[in-house]
Nucleic acid binder design. Structure first.
Lengths: 117, 117
DNA sequence: ACAATAACTAACAAAATAGTGAGCTATAAA
DNA sequence: TTTATAGCTCACTATTTTGTTAGTTATTGT
């Protein structure tokens, strides 16, 4: 649980108010998140498919990240009718989709950085 | 100190190898970092100027972030000759500069997200 | 002598994030 | 009846990141 009045929280709030850049970074800046969004965009849009795509993630962590992304309206969770056991599909919202080109820029940046350029 | 063989570290490495996007996110995804880079780009390129720009940051944290950014070759530290006490100026490398347009995209994204669009 | 400034670092504590292992619901197939 | 699948959640520990407090070096101004 987050402490509402820790300096940590206060600073987070300060940065969010200072510039929306910090809001964006708090959304995409934690582990697995960008990879999950990318996986969904590539069709790995169900829990078990993501587990295959990201073999090192634990179910608990995957579940937490998906819940957070849902709260942030980056993804929407839809149950798939008439499936047994009941299936769930995750869909990117337009907000989520609009991150994809930014991910491409970051990826390109990271590649040239890796090469020491 | 980081533990080299924690699952945490192993997963970090896995993600870096998987896609350079994750490298980029590890660079810009921690607190204050984007704001520091932006401040330098705007001319707040000395320790005491950054403290003014970011009144809530502690000196220890600022120092740590600057050292990390230097190791990552995002910034370069230069002493200013003939200043007393000795001044230090931080300069963005081309790698650092090339983050600025990405920050703008993220900022724009964050703004529309804030508005609930 | 003492305070002030610039630019830190060290030792530590607090908070937050990431990961572990078990368990749950429901159905159906072997 | 046990096992399997899908999609989780709970209580917990480990690890990492953030923040706190005090102190350092060197020089000038009072």
């Amino acid at each position: 649980m987050r402490k509402k009045n820790s300096t940590n929280s206060i600073n987070e709030k300060y940065l969010h108010e200072r510039c929306a850049l910090n809001v964006a970074i708090d959304v995409i800046g934690s582990r697995w998140v960008s990879q999950i969004i990318f996986s969904i965009s590539q069709g790995a849009n169900r829990f078990h498919l993501m587990k295959e795509e990201l073999p090192n993630i634990s179910e608990q962590v995957l579940s937490r990240k998906l819940n957070t992304l849902e709260k942030q309206k980056i993804i929407i969770k839809k149950t798939i009718p008439d499936t047994i056991p009941l299936g769930v599909r995750y869909i990117l919202t337009s907000k989520g989709e609009s991150l994809l080109p930014i991910f491409e820029s970051l990826c390109a940046w990271g590649k040239s950085y890796d090469l020491g350029a």
